[in-house]
Design a binder for these strands. Structure first.
Length: 567
DNA sequence: GCCGTTTTCGGCCCGACTGTTTTCAGTCG
């Protein structure tokens, strides 16, 4: 069974090779497009193909790509990719990630010297051979040499939460400069994507060159890459790229829209504009030479016949169609959250006592929380035994008497064992209000059956894919099947707010919502301050199109109790 | 390779920056 991500990766690799081969750029784009469509889809392509769904109904997929995707799903292979791989050495693809080297120059180098690896490329750059090629000057050679060294670092994206502090610090720094009116951080940061490749910062200021001069003096700037009349790029000491762009007040909305992206969303917006005889760029919306909109994003959307679309939705995952047909979601907000169903205390591997967690929750205006410490299998990692659980339940009763303003639900995070059973007996579990279940070990192989069985007994499936961003990939399982069963059994799907988990991922959230599942945005806090991580989970939920009614922990306590059948 | 109430051929988003040029190609976002 192949995942959407794997299909997308095959198509995208094919695009890389076609590009190096010198194919028609628009053909290359068609492959990249298809890769993005598959990766961003909230439908499982494996299933679509099996059901005989006509893929050409998807805009961007035609007769050829439809049959190619079918081939990939059915055989796990793609003949065109295999042919290209025979023809083009893999080293050339690696070169694509070197800054300054694109398909044309790579081709040029290959044709001239038959260079097929990064090591050889380094050799030719150092011995002066590359200089002989037209268009290759000393600066470019230097850039290539630097790129060869850095290539391993390339491709790692920063966790959203890891750039948050730095982004806000730069925002403050820029506002200190005289004449700066607006600073906004656009790009994937504004779309709240789980990882961020770079920061795109827009400034409206009287004198941009002066702001740029001030910007590149920011304390964490390691290297100035470029500094132009409207745009400057720097690298910070943690290798994060930051782009600063000058924008005029009249164009602010158009620029904010343009630089917020995503690219796929923008392309769709421009197509709509063309249909109306308009042109959209970062300066505004134009009819002929006349600018008709651009001061605000609302103006831009209105000009092309749309309502405002929240940044988190701008991924070309159906938001434009939803807007045209009036079913855009009213996204969940921080203020809507009334509780948290997953947190740890000193009973397992948490740093704080139950009472400290309760106080913090009250401080956050929560109406209810669930205490869910680890169960016994994780005794090695400070899980609880049955006896410890029973004494914890008594302690919760005592604390509950003291704090009437909040309902403390009795819960546990049980382990889903290899065969799908849980590591506490039914008798013990019956004493609890809420059972959070999760897989914590043995991630190899198809996990579908294991999870399906566990869904019979748990209330919440915690961090369902078990991925750790940049570290561990998701488990292999048929999530569409799991979501259907979760809906049937009223099992809530967790959106785990830990910045490196954010599990479920956004496309799965949307898939599950369309199936009709309910969700809980949980902090999985291991100390009381971590309860505030919930904001990262909210970001993720918004990217998955969730509304208040989809998120159980934004409901009134009585509705939660009814849904979970708590007595 | 995709797409289509001006089109089944001929378009395909578009501008900034760099490095190399001496008017522009390649790359990037």
């Amino acid at each position: 069974m192949i995942t959407n991500k794997e299909i997308a990766s095959i198509l995208s690799k094919t695009a890389d090779l076609l590009e190096i081969k010198g194919e028609n750029p628009f053909k290359v784009r068609a492959y990249r497009n298809a890769a993005r469509i598959v990766e961003n889809s909230s439908k499982d392509f494996n299933k679509l193909v099996k059901e005989g769904f006509d893929l050409t109904r998807l805009p961007g997929i035609g007769k050829d790509l439809s049959s190619f995707i079918k081939e990939i799903v059915e055989t796990g292979k793609f003949h065109k990719l295999e042919e290209l791989q025979k023809e083009i050495p893999p080293g050339l693809v690696d070169m694509l990630s070197i800054e300054g080297l694109g398909p044309k120059r790579i081709r040029q180098i290959y044709d001239a010297f038959k260079v097929t690896s990064l090591d050889e490329l380094k050799k030719y750059a150092e011995n002066g051979e590359l200089d002989k090629l037209p268009g290759f000057g000393p600066k470019l050679i230097e850039k290539i040499l630097k790129g060869v060294k850095q290539i391993k670092k390339a491709g790692i994206r920063f966790l959203w939460a890891d750039v948050e502090e730095i982004a806000e610090d730069i925002r403050k720094y820029l506002f200190k400069f005289k004449g700066v009116e607006i600073v906004e951080i656009a790009g994937s940061y504004r779309r709240k994507k789980e990882t961020v490749g770079d920061l795109d910062i827009l400034v409206v200021a009287e004198d941009y060159p002066k702001v740029s001069e001030y910007f590149i003096k920011y304390k964490k700037v390691k290297e100035v890459h470029s500094a132009g009349l409207t745009r400057s790029t720097v690298f910070l000491d943690n290798d994060l790229q930051v782009d600063l762009r000058a924008v005029s007040k009249e164009s602010y909305g158009a620029a904010l829209h343009y630089f917020t992206g995503s690219k796929a969303h923008n392309i769709e917006i421009r197509k709509l504009a063309i249909e109306k005889g308009l042109k959209v760029n970062e300066y505004g919306v134009y009819r002929g030479d006349k600018r008709i909109a651009g001061k605000s994003e609302e103006e831009v959307y209105e000009a092309v016949g749309l309502c405002f679309i929240e940044p988190e939705l701008r991924e070309n995952r159906g938001e434009i169609e939803a807007c045209l047909n009036n079913y855009l979601p009213k996204l969940i907000r921080k203020e809507d959250i009334l509780g948290d169903f997953h947190m740890h205390t000193s009973y397992s591997d948490g740093a704080n006592y139950i009472e400290e967690m309760v106080k913090k929750a009250i401080n956050l205006n929560y109406k209810y929380i669930a205490i869910t410490d680890h169960s016994k299998r994780l005794k090695v990692a400070n899980g609880m035994s049955e006896e410890e659980l029973l004494s914890q339940l008594k302690e919760i009763d005592e604390i509950q008497k003291k704090y009437k303003e909040i309902k403390i639900l009795k819960g546990i995070e049980v382990d889903i064992l290899e065969d799908g059973s849980l590591d506490f007996s039914d008798e013990i579990l019956e004493k609890l209000d809420i059972i959070v279940g999760a897989i914590h070990y043995k991630f190899e192989g198809d996990q579908t059956k294991r999870i399906l069985k566990a869904l019979e007994k748990i209330d919440i499936l915690a961090h369902p894919t078990n991925r750790i961003i940049n570290k561990r990939s998701e488990i292999n399982a048929n999530f569409e099947e799991i979501f259907h069963k979760a809906k049937e059994k009223n099992v809530i799907l967790e959106i785990n707010s830990q910045p490196d988990r954010l599990d479920l991922p956004d496309t799965y959230i949307k898939m599950a919502k369309e199936i009709g599942c309910k969700f809980a945005i949980n902090s999985d806090a291991h100390n009381c301050n971590m309860l505030e991580y919930i904001k990262y989970g909210i970001n993720q939920a918004r990217r998955g199109w969730l509304e208040k009614e989809d998120v159980v922990n934004s409901w009134k306590l009585e509705d939660v109790i009814k849904f979970l059948k708590i007595h």
